[in-house]
Simulated scan of single mutants.
Amino acid sequence: MLHAVIMAGGAGTRFWPASRADRPKQLLDLTGEGTMIQATACRLGDLMSPDRVLIVTNQRLVEPIQEQFPELPPSAIVGEPCKRDTAPCIGLAAMLVSRNDPDAIMVVMPSDHVISPESAFQSAVRYGASLVADAEDRIVTFGIQPKYAAETFGYIERGESLSSDPAAPPTFTVARFREKPKGDLAREYFESGQFYWNSGIFIWKAKTILDALQKYEPEMYAHLAAINDAWGTPQQAEVFDAEFAAIRGKSIDYAVMEHHQDVVVIEAPFLWDDVGNWQSLQRLNQPDADGNTVLANHLGVDTHESIIKADDDHLIVTLGMREVIVVHTHDATLVADKNREEEIREVVKQLQANGWDAHL
């Protein structure tokens, strides 16, 4: 059967001050249509019943996620004791899914993307699952057609075409996964027409990914197996804390994808946005006549090409502003040059260094 694993452990520091340790990006409503993680779960539609959805996050977020998903049993939300990247997260999820369904097929996806239309996503997942069902060791991923020479995404180099059904989206073998490129290399990837952005969405059999982790990351696999053996026993929490902390963190791309032989990329037939920073809101919301993206109670006088966001009815007034980001929360306000947005991460680091933990 098909199962969904939603990875929801990110910090979302580029969305400070709205994104905090107790309410990171995936728990925010950035589009006016519910929180990011709620939209991710809703996107699954009728692909599977709620009892086949597993959310993996960090321990600090288990309770707030449970509040957003009262229909899910507590066992459907797993809180990691520490951050160890995506490979251990996925490996643990595969083991937990396999306990009740050894033949499970998993669709694994981040919790903080915007994808539309939902029907196209669901059709693509069904198609990907059929490709996995047809080949025991196959791994399927989705590639996003690049819109520009991005330096912030990993890339997938496509190989031979596997498309035989004209009604199905273009499908290729994967020649290679590429790290985030810089400058000229990013432009080379973009102009070649042979590369996709890596969406971070995967489909595979639980057994396939576990066999791959056991082969390529035996030490990691051993720690995960110890956790799985103790799951549901009085020793679960103690073993989980100790064994997970002992894992050397690694992404699933490095741990498995760069080594596995049968990897297929489907050209995504849906619109995708990773919502990586505040400027993403410009793509997701209609700007006003002055080019401003406003999600707040706002009065703008001679204000242009700016992003204004507030969580409550606090009035924000801007005068003579151009290309700025203004974000107001109950205890912090950010005013930033839109073109220096990447430095928000440095702001968070300075808050940490200054011991201003209440604002993190």
Rank of each mutant, 00 (worst) to 15 (best):
residue 212 A to E: 08
residue 35 T to E: 13
residue 226 A to N: 12
residue 91 G to C: 01
residue 319 L to G: 09
residue 263 V to A: 03
residue 129 A to R: 03
residue 222 A to F: 08
residue 75 S to D: 11
residue 82 C to Q: 04
residue 201 I to T: 08
residue 95 M to E: 13
residue 142 F to E: 02
residue 250 K to W: 00
residue 132 V to D: 07
residue 72 L to W: 11
residue 141 T to D: 04
residue 70 P to A: 03
residue 268 A to S: 14
residue 182 K to S: 13
residue 280 S to N: 11
residue 95 M to R: 15
residue 105 I to P: 04
residue 82 C to I: 06
residue 300 G to F: 11
residue 133 A to S: 14
residue 138 R to I: 13
residue 210 L to P: 00
residue 35 T to G: 15
residue 268 A to T: 03
residue 37 I to T: 14
residue 287 P to Y: 02
residue 114 V to I: 15
residue 277 N to W: 10
residue 172 F to Y: 15
residue 314 H to L: 06
residue 10 G to V: 10
residue 51 D to W: 04
residue 26 Q to Y: 01
residue 300 G to L: 04
residue 316 I to S: 12
residue 168 A to G: 10
residue 231 W to E: 03
residue 302 D to C: 00
residue 160 E to H: 05
residue 60 R to M: 07
residue 283 R to L: 10
residue 228 N to Y: 07
residue 23 R to P: 01
residue 92 L to S: 07
residue 231 W to P: 02
residue 164 S to M: 05
residue 325 I to Q: 07
residue 322 R to Q: 11
residue 172 F to S: 10
residue 24 P to D: 00
residue 342 E to S: 15
residue 100 N to L: 06
residue 16 W to V: 02
residue 351 L to K: 11
residue 307 I to E: 01
residue 196 Y to H: 12
residue 342 E to D: 15
residue 14 R to F: 05
residue 96 L to T: 08
residue 191 E to R: 04
residue 157 E to D: 04
residue 166 P to S: 07
residue 186 A to Y: 01
residue 218 P to D: 13
residue 351 L to G: 07
residue 271 L to N: 07
residue 304 H to V: 04
residue 213 L to C: 09
residue 259 H to T: 10
residue 196 Y to C: 06
residue 215 K to E: 14
residue 152 T to S: 08
residue 326 V to S: 03
residue 340 R to W: 11
residue 245 A to D: 14
residue 206 A to P: 07
residue 43 R to E: 12
residue 145 Q to T: 15
residue 87 A to V: 08
residue 216 Y to A: 14
residue 44 L to V: 09
residue 131 L to M: 05
residue 69 F to T: 08
residue 251 S to W: 08
residue 298 H to I: 06
residue 173 T to R: 15
residue 200 G to T: 00
residue 40 T to K: 09
residue 272 W to M: 02
residue 101 D to W: 00
residue 95 M to H: 15
residue 188 E to F: 01
residue 311 D to R: 03
residue 60 R to P: 02
residue 250 K to V: 14
residue 31 T to H: 02
residue 120 A to W: 04
residue 338 K to E: 12
residue 217 E to C: 15
residue 357 D to Q: 13
residue 5 V to G: 02
residue 85 D to S: 12
residue 298 H to D: 06
residue 307 I to M: 03
residue 181 P to I: 03
residue 205 K to S: 15
residue 331 D to I: 02
residue 159 G to W: 02
residue 107 V to N: 09
residue 141 T to V: 12
residue 222 A to D: 14
residue 116 S to D: 14
residue 250 K to M: 09
residue 312 D to G: 04
residue 185 L to P: 00
residue 221 Y to W: 13
residue 136 E to I: 13
residue 31 T to L: 04
residue 311 D to M: 01
residue 318 T to L: 11
residue 52 R to Q: 10
residue 358 A to Q: 14
residue 255 A to H: 09
residue 14 R to C: 06
residue 319 L to D: 14
residue 171 T to I: 05
residue 281 L to I: 05
residue 96 L to D: 07
residue 133 A to M: 12
residue 293 T to L: 01
residue 209 I to P: 00
